[in-house]
Design a protein around this nucleic acid. Structure first.
Lengths: 116, 116
DNA sequence: CTAATAGTTAGCCATATGGAAAACCAAGCG
DNA sequence: CGCTTGGTTTTCCATATGGCTAACTATTAG
């Protein structure tokens, strides 16, 4: 449930930190459409290339993006399997919360049926 | 900024930022079990109360936790409906990615069947 | 009324983050 | 070879973050 033995340690800190910035989410949304070179990704964005590179490094540290250089072009790919754990933590909390609320509702019903 | 008509409104910033810290995730995991007072939440944690309060404010800004004070006790509640959007963004990206990979697989199959 | 309890404010500090400009490689092209 | 293109490194800046202590306010228990 926690660590699925995929690449680097699936650390939620880095993952959620990576996704907490709109620029970086935009990059991910681009990469969903397919791999892209650094300049293709940076082009439309209103920030300088070096600044973009910092964002890219944050994404790489989080494991959500992998990059490789061929010649002078660095291509960026999304690692879809890293999206799972991020989604899972939220889903897990939500489910636990719902179960609790259900139990609470049951209890309330019992009390109503069988008042003290 | 450049929101490309993809995904929900960008208060995801605050949400993901809130979840990028282990202390704050621990608080959320506690609150899933039910509402709790500030000191109950802060007690087990290895940080000072003022520091804890800062974390709590981050959680409140993100909308994931609501608090109310009665007498001298401030009680913290989880807002489960805020967990949904956070989960959804990831789910949405993952699904888009999967669809793309499926199309790609189909294409590869076609090529194999019908080589150029 | 006094004292303990539960938070809150106010400083202070070190590090991290997001941003920019400038100068610097290295791979291709003509 | 020399120029251009695509990245990279370095340096610098302002602000945010996470942590602390100390001092303060406001309830409530005795």
């Amino acid at each position: 449930m926690e660590n699925q033995a995929l690449g680097p340690p699936a650390d939620l800190d880095a993952l959620y930190h990576a996704m907490s910035d709109p620029t970086r989410r935009a990059v991910v949304e681009q990469l969903v459409a397919g791999p892209a070179a650094v300049s293709e990704l940076a082009g439309p964005l209103p920030i300088s290339l070096p600044t973009f590179l910092k964002h890219l490094k944050v994404l790489e540290r989080s494991g959500i993006v992998r990059t490789e250089k061929q010649g002078r072009v660095r291509t960026c790919h999304l690692q879809p399997e890293r999206l799972g754990p991020a989604e899972d933590w939220f889903a897990s909390q939500r489910r636990r919360m719902e179960r609790r609320l259900d139990r609470l509702a049951d209890l309330a019903e019992d009390l109503e049926r069988n008042p003290q």
